[in-house]
Amino acid sequence: MQQDWKAICQIDDIPAQGARVVKRAGADDIAVFRTVDNQIFALIDKCPHKGGPLSQGVVHGRAVTCPLHNWVIALDSGEAQGPDEGCAGHIPVRLEAGTVYLALPQAVATCDHAC
């Protein structure tokens, strides 16, 4: 599929250890995360457990804890950690001169395992 790098926001629009939601017409929301060491990641804003909005979770290390039932999701792959199984698709991200770009319209990479 045709894919473009789309500028979404400036890195400082996202608080460290926080997230912002990107809304798209007719498609799932995307959660864009910024870690404590200023890495940016993007996932579909939907927990593999019961669809909780991951953007509302607590960001720690390279992971986010879902606000609904505390699954821990790896930010780089979207995979649930520990004994939980499931994957929220992740979206390639680029950070250039402080601007955050997402690979859109749709380049959701699922993890290697069956999701």
Binding site: V58, T65, N70
Partner: peptide, 11 residues
């Protein structure tokens, strides 16, 4: 042990 804790210890 972790760089910025987790959803249990930080709150």
């Amino acid at each position: 042990r972790t760089p910025d804790g987790c959803a249990t210890c930080r709150p």
